[in-house]
Design a protein around this nucleic acid. Sequence first.
DNA 1: TGGAATATTTTTGGATCCAAATGACACTAG
DNA 2: CTAGTGTCATTTGGATCCAAAAATATTCCA
Lengths: 236, 236
Amino acid sequence: MTQKPNPLSRIKVNGPIPAHMARSVIEETLRAAILDGRIPCGAALRQQDLADLFGVSRMPVREALRQLEAQSLLNVVAHKGAVVAPLVQGDAVETYALRILLESEALRLSVPLLREEDLEEAARYIDELETESDYTEIGRLNRLFHMTLYSQAPNRRLLKLVEDGLNEEERFLRFNLEAMGLGKLSQDDHKALLQAAAERDVERSVKLLEHHLNRGVEVITRYLNSPEVQARNRSK
Amino acid sequence: MTQKPNPLSRIKVNGPIPAHMARSVIEETLRAAILDGRIPCGAALRQQDLADLFGVSRMPVREALRQLEAQSLLNVVAHKGAVVAPLVQGDAVETYALRILLESEALRLSVPLLREEDLEEAARYIDELETESDYTEIGRLNRLFHMTLYSQAPNRRLLKLVEDGLNEEERFLRFNLEAMGLGKLSQDDHKALLQAAAERDVERSVKLLEHHLNRGVEVITRYLNSPEVQARNRSK
DNA sequence: TGGAATATTTTTGGATCCAAATGACACTAG
DNA sequence: CTAGTGTCATTTGGATCCAAAAATATTCCA
């Protein structure tokens, strides 16, 4: 049996919490830790442990957990604890189908309105991705690259949903990158996508994006079907 | 100055709360009251008042308010209270643009898979809408009719977003119905939509749905630009 | 030795209490 | 008469306490 180190050990607290913003700090810290995978799926978070970790009482922890539950990042089961929402295969396929729908529309609306500075910003993210090797940072840069391309879509509500989807992807992405070095492939996709956007070729951009996302779901499906993951799921 | 009756007076509590499900009961009650407009936009909800009303302490009220905030039904401002989220015009246009995107896709996926019983259920809702005159009930039936048509779409995540959008619409709908008797028009739309779905004519269904929703946003825009509403917004 | 029933322990949810922050009101000074 | 300042009340956020429910461990009996 593999040792099961307390997942909380991977959360670091930067010192005493400013007291009256405890809830938001805890929520943000936990969200980041869940999204980038420091807290694995299925881990049960207990209120008292988190309270001790952050040096506060259980109260702000409770509220933070509820907020995260509302964002469906974790499921709170009565008297059993807050369990980090699992990444099941069906969900991955559904998530990517949704992303294609939402991000295609966002891209369609945004490309004609993109400014030069947006394109330069996106290019910078591609450059940074070239040299970055930390998974968490790669996830962040990937999200920022995509959001920059969508940023001029005149529908904030749509953008909010797109961003939620990208946050969700960061969870998958971490596993992708660890499992198989997919980074280079994605970089080619990114460059082609930026090129099409710079030429204001809406339909080609959308096609490239769909292709990019379809390959993403394929890779993830293969990963979730891999013997390693299958075994882990059986053991749970 | 118009008298300002406590908005809480329109919430009725059915007796003592079963103690260990206080939070969920409060959340559901408040959500329903906000969605169907019994609590008007801009109303400030105070924790102690709600606690007294439900006969519990402030604690479950707090958690319920946070949950509702996460669903962006209200904005919690520190030391100022929980304010019911406003219905501004920009939001309406954006919301309907999103609904068209999401519901078109849901309909496209669902129509080929609809069973006879689904079609019968949808027809029943249309019949009930024919005789119903209570705004709250009309909103509920309208939502159920649409959801029935989408119900077979094989993407639960998409359906969740669609349902959120429909819940949001119920808030607008109440004002629509009060302002102008739009009921009959919608009924014709509904019947045509059901007919197209029954004939498995996907593209015609989608076209009809888009038309239906586009008329919705038009009516709402007109309503929000009406002198009455303009005056109310200025006074705030 | 195995299973079932019970007791203990763990953990969450609600109540009450306290502190901090913000807004309103009144009072004073110019 | 107005503007600015200071105090007070209101309200939210956090801490602590208590009760209820569930999981687990232990013990007893077959």
